[in-house]
Amino acid sequence: MESVFFVILAVVTVFSALMVILQKNPMTSVLFLILAFFSTAALYVLLSAPFLAAVQIIVYAGAIMVLFLFVIMLLNLNRIKEEGSPLLKALGMMVAGMLLVIAAVVIRSTVIPSDSGFVAGTEPGFGSVEAIGRSLFTTYLLPFEIASFLLLAAIIGAVVLAKKKL
């Protein structure tokens, strides 16, 4: 049952990720990106990490992509011109090839456990809000606080940028 869901979700994820770069209309690309985030969140649920799934949807699909949508709507990029300069094409191919090499190295060096495809968290309470909260406030307290400090700085920066006169 789980592997059936996994295959469906994996296909949807990969398909929508491909559609993001194959679509000519940027608005449709954004929507496919949202779909990709969604199916990734569903994969997190399958891996018994519901908190991560909810946060993925709230932060990426609910907040960040709305901003993307805003920018695209207001910039009015109707159709991106297809032809780029040949230099750009060559550069793009080079970067893609390098990425492929890196990915190949990573995939080759990954040891896949022989029994079954993916392993969900085993101990009870794994991936729950309580478990994540506890580890955030005990083991990873310092990184957590530093991240919140960074966000505060970003908020203040945004206010300073937006308001010319304070």
Partner: peptide, 25 residues
């Protein structure tokens, strides 16, 4: 019975904005 019931509400409540924005656009 979701462990993250409240977050689920927020997640799907937050998606409602797409319908209105896309309708306008």
């Amino acid at each position: 019975k979701l462990n993250i019931g409240y977050l689920y509400l927020l997640a799907f409540g937050g998606l409602a904005v797409y319908g209105t924005v896309l309708a306008g656009y």
